[in-house]
Amino acid sequence: MTEKIRARPLEGLLAALDLTDTGARTNEDIFTGPSQWMPQGRVFGGQVLAQSITAAMRTVDENRIVHSMHGYFLRPGNIDKPITFAVDRIHDGRSFATRRTQAYQDGTPILSLIASFQTEDDGLDHQIDMPAGIPQPEEIPSTAERLEGIDHPVARFWATERPFDMRHVDSPIYLAVEGQPVGHQAVWMKALGTLPDDPNLHRAALAYASDYTILEPIYRRHGIAWVTPGLKTASLDHAMWWHRFGRVDEWMLYVQESPSGHGGRGLSLGRIYSRDGVLLASVAQEGMVRVPPSEHVS
């Protein structure tokens, strides 16, 4: 197996989620997956989340779908090494099943995640509506267009090597924060190509994409761009709830806000809608937030 993937963006995503069942001979729930290339040498957190969910999915009945997960990022992953995923079958009830996935490199855990699965059922139905007045994605420049001509490895990666097209409704914070500092934003996103008609693949890919931009409202609130010297950030934990099915190769709106930043940490909440306003998922993530004292803005 190739340990590090640097292929066309969507092919790289699909290859990362095509886990190898390395525990079949010993009757253990152990899987192995490759790492995608990243410009700073650290595995993208969304990749490990999606792979961990995929490993857990391999151990439940097909009629049970993932509806929630809670994960902790323990250590940075190394893109030069594969990742091993060990799944514990914690609970199998009449309607729900629970799995714990531990992701390892060199025998050391880098992520610990618990996911819950449910047999589809009828019940009450309501949702928070998608914000009104949002421009359509075709009206908004892509990241590739916004960063065109910037000769920097991170800028080139953001522009052309991610498997998702990301379009900030307001200007992005890659290079500068325009307008008033606010703790919220909205981003259109869609896979750069068509994915197979596998619902679980789309659910895992949605977990992958949910790690994009989720911490940005924290920095936007304080007028801090990604290029700020001395800026240090890392995801600490990630929670996600899948409400309804949606395809990630169709446009989705990721609405995000940060209710709090304190003590070197920041919290962001997100809602992911289909283009026609169906609430697909909710997300929460806390991250380490360290900025130079001169950059602090209340």
Rank of each mutant, 00 (worst) to 15 (best):
V177M: 10
L49A: 12
S35M: 01
G71Q: 01
P82M: 09
I5V: 12
R220S: 01
M252R: 13
E145H: 11
M252G: 04
D121E: 15
K190R: 15
W242G: 00
F157E: 01
G261P: 00
E3P: 07
R156G: 10
G33H: 04
R75L: 11
V227R: 14
R162D: 02
A176F: 11
S235M: 09
P153V: 11
A239Y: 06
F117N: 00
E62W: 00
K4Q: 15
W242F: 13
A191Q: 02
W188G: 05
V187C: 08
Y72I: 02
S274Q: 09
V227C: 14
R146C: 11
V43C: 07
K81W: 09
D129M: 14
A155D: 11
H184D: 11
G263E: 04
I224A: 00
K232C: 14
T108S: 14
V297F: 15
D106A: 12
R58P: 02
P137Y: 05
S298G: 09
V87S: 03
S282H: 05
F164M: 11
Q285E: 05
A284Q: 13
H168Y: 13
V60M: 00
E28Y: 07
T84P: 01
V87T: 03
E139D: 15
A50M: 04
T233K: 07
E11S: 11
R146G: 04
Q136C: 10
P217E: 00
I65P: 00
Y254G: 06
M57L: 15
L231Y: 09
L253T: 05
T98P: 01
K190A: 02
D165L: 08
D276C: 11
G123F: 09
H168A: 12
K81C: 05
Y72D: 09
D197A: 14
P34R: 03
M252L: 15
W241V: 05
W158P: 00
Y212G: 03
V291G: 05
E145A: 14
F117D: 00
S294Q: 15
R275D: 12
Q105F: 07
I272K: 08
S116D: 04
S210R: 03
A204L: 04
E216I: 05
D92A: 12
A284T: 14
L147C: 03
P229Y: 02
G223S: 07
I83Y: 03
Q185W: 02
D121W: 05
M189K: 04
A56P: 01
G123I: 07
I79R: 07
G45S: 04
P153M: 09
L195R: 01
M38E: 14
D61K: 02
R94P: 02
L231Q: 06
P199C: 02
Q40I: 15
R6S: 14
G71N: 03
T143F: 05
T233G: 14
G123P: 05
A186V: 06
V297T: 15
E138T: 13
H222L: 08
R220L: 06
I272E: 05
H243L: 12
L175Q: 10
V227L: 13
I218R: 02
D92L: 06
D106K: 08
E145N: 08
